[in-house]
Design a protein around this nucleic acid. Structure first.
Lengths: 327, 327
DNA sequence: TTGTAGGCGTTATCAT
DNA sequence: ATGATAACGCCTACAA
C-alpha cells in the first residue's frame, strides 16, 4: 500500500479511501491511485484489515460430519448466504465423541468470527454463554443443552407423529419399532416422543422394548433387527429416527423388506427398491435461516431476544411403507 | 494481554513467553502469569498473531460442491489432517460455472492461507502462477489447465479401461455407450480415452455416436438414454464416467435396467437393485495426501519440484454389469 | 530470566 | 479533499 501511495504521489490513507469507495476523493486522484494499484497489482492484506477490524469476515460452521449430505446441505446454504455478503466460511466436523466438541468449537471462536452456526453433538453447552458476548451463535437442527440462544430446528415431534400415525392409520400397523442413534440429542428425544404420542392417540400403549438406539451403521442395524425379531411379539413396521439409521436399515432390509418410514430424506432413497418413505426436511432452508439470523443480530436484531424457530416437515410417501407384511 | 501482565506484575512479553511455552521463564513467574490468565480468562487474539505472522493458520479447500459426498470426503480428510497440526479449514463450493472459479479462489488466496487444495471446474489456471509464490497450491482429482503444480489424481484412463474391458471380456458387450458430464475436465477426457482404448484392444472401433455428455441430472440422463435407444444400432451396455451421472442413470434405469458400470462409488450404490458395479476411488486418501503435500512444501519439500501422483482405483463388481440384456 | 522498542498493514481521528 | 499520527495485539531483536 505504501508503494502504491508513493507511486501515485499520495498518502496511504488516500489509497485506503480509494479502496473503500470513500466518496471524498477527487476523480483525478482516484484514477491516479487506481492506475498505480494496477501497475503494482496491489492486493490488500486481508489479514491486516481483519486485525484492524477486530473481527474476521468469516462464518464458522460446526457440524457432526460434513460428509453427511444433510449437514453438507446446511453448510452449503450458509456458505452461499455468507458469500453473497462477502464473507467466507470455515467448516469443522465435530465427530461422534461429545467430548471433542468443546475444543473444536473453541478453536473456531478464538478466531473472532463474525458468527458461528452449530449442529451439536455434545451434552452441555453452558460454556458457550461467555462466548456469546463476542460472537452471535446459532444452533441448527439440534437444540443446545443448558443454553439459551437462537435455534432453528425441524418439527421433530410432529414429524415423527405423522410418520408413525401414517403406519398406523393408513397401513394398519400396531407394533411399530423405533430405530434411533444418539439418544441424548434433542432431535432423537423429540422424535421418540412423537412415536409415543402417535401410538397413544391410536389407543396403543408404546412398548419400550421396541426402542432400539445406537444404530449408526449397518452392523448395528442388523443387530437391532435381530433383537426385534426375537421378541415374543415382534414389530410389523419400523420407524427410523434419522437418515443415518435409515440408510443402514435400508441396506439390511434389502432382501427382506419390512414396512418402514424414515425421518430425513437421503441420497437415492427414491431409487431403492422399495423406495423409502420419509419425513422430508429442508436443510438448505435451515442453513439459510441460520446465516441470516447472524446477520440480523449483527444489525442489532438482538433486541427481540433469542428466537426458537421450528420448521415444518412433510411426509413423502414412497413404497417402503406399504411393502408386503412379514409373518 | 496487557491486563494479564499488569495483574501478574510482569511485562507483556513475559505473558507472551508463558503462552508460547518459552523455557526461559521461572516456574514462579509462570505460575503467577497463569493465575492471572485464569482470573481474567484471557484468550489470545488469534487475529493479531496471524497478522504478525503474515500467514493465516488455515488450509483452503475449493471443490465443485461440498454436498457431493466425494468432495465432502476429500474436504473431511484435509480437515482431519490439518487439525492434527493445529490448522483450521476454509471451504468454498465453486459451483458449475467455470467463470465463477477464479474470483472464488482468489478471495481465499487473498487471506494468506497456509495452503490451498483445489478440485477445479475451470478451463484455465495459468493465472494461479503468480499466487504460487506465496501459497502452496495442490490440485486433487482433476488436473490443472495451463499450470504446473502438485497434483493428485486417480487412474482415470486405466480405471475406465478396466470398466469397459470388464463389460467386453466378461459380459460379451460390443456396443458400450459413454455417459459423461463436463467434457473439458481432465477426469472426463482421460476416462473417455480409456473407453476408446478398451474397445480398440478388443478390436472394436469406438463409435463416437455412443458418447453422451452433459449428463448432470436425471432429466439429462433420460434424454441421453432416449438418444442412444434411437440409434440404428443402440448400445447394449453403459459406462458412466462419474458418480453424478451414475446416480442420475441409476434412477432412470430403475424400472428398466441396462448393463452398467460407473466410475466412482456413491451412497447406496450397493443397496440399489441391481446394485451398481463401480470403479472405486479413495477420496479420503486423495485429501490426506494433498494436505500432507502442503506441509512437506512448507517444510522445504519444494526442492523436488512438482509431484504428479496418480492413485490406483479398483473395480468393485456388483450386480448392474450383469443384468439381463435389453436389445 | 526479564524488559524495552519497534513494526507487521490497515484505518479512525483530527487537522489542514 | 487530503494527510499526519496513532493504534489494533502480538512477537522478534536486542538490551539489561
Amino acid at each position: 500500500m505504501r508503494d502504491v501511495a508513493a507511486r501515485a504521489g499520495v498518502s496511504t490513507k488516500t489509497v485506503s479511501r480509494v479502496f473503500n469507495d470513500d466518496p471524498h476523493v477527487l476523480p483525478a486522484t482516484r484514477a491516479l491511485v487506481e492506475q498505480a494499484m494496477r501497475d503494482l497489482n496491489y492486493v490488500p492484506n486481508v489479514l491486516a484489515t481483519t486485525f484492524r477490524a477486530g473481527r474476521a469476515s468469516v462464518i464458522g460452521v460446526a457440524v457432526p460430519d460434513i460428509v453427511d449430505p444433510f449437514f453438507a446441505a446446511i453448510a452449503r446454504a450458509i456458505e452461499d448466504t455468507a458469500r453473497a455478503r462477502g464473507l467466507s466460511t470455515m467448516v469443522t466436523s465435530l465427530g461422534d465423541d461429545p467430548a471433542d466438541e468443546r475444543p473444536a468449537i473453541e478453536s473456531m471462536l478464538g478466531r473472532q468470527l463474525t458468527g458461528l452456526v452449530i449442529a451439536p453433538v455434545g451434552t452441555d453447552h453452558s460454556w458457550l454463554q461467555r462466548w456469546r458476548e463476542h460472537t452471535p451463535i446459532v444452533f441448527v437442527d439440534r437444540a443446545p443443552v443448558d443454553l439459551e440462544t437462537d435455534t432453528f430446528t425441524e418439527a421433530d415431534e410432529s414429524g415423527a407423529y405423522t410418520a408413525v400415525e401414517h403406519l398406523i392409520a393408513r397401513h394398519g400397523h400396531r407394533r411399530i419399532a423405533y430405530i434411533g442413534d444418539i439418544v441424548h440429542l434433542s432431535t432423537e428425544t423429540k422424535r421418540l416422543e412423537g412415536w409415543r404420542r402417535a401410538q397413544r392417540a391410536a389407543g396403543i400403549e408404546p412398548d419400550e422394548a421396541l426402542v432400539q438406539s445406537h444404530v449408526s451403521d449397518r452392523l448395528a442395524a442388523a443387530g437391532a433387527l435381530d433383537r426385534l425379531r426375537a421378541l415374543p411379539d415382534p414389530p410389523t413396521a419400523l420407524f427410523s429416527a434419522n437418515a443415518r439409521s435409515s440408510m443402514a436399515l435400508a441396506h439390511v432390509l434389502r432382501d427382506d423388506p419390512v414396512p418402514f418410514v424414515g425421518f430425513g430424506d437421503f441420497p437415492m432413497a427414491d431409487t431403492l427398491a422399495p423406495s423409502v418413505t420419509v419425513i422430508d426436511q429442508d436443510p438448505r432452508r435451515l442453513g439459510r435461516l441460520a446465516a441470516e439470523r447472524i446477520f440480523s443480530r449483527l444489525a442489532g436484531g438482538a433486541q427481540d431476544g433469542d428466537v426458537f424457530t421450528v420448521l415444518d416437515v412433510r411426509l413423502v410417501e414412497r413404497e417402503s411403507c406399504r411393502v408386503g407384511r412379514r409373518d
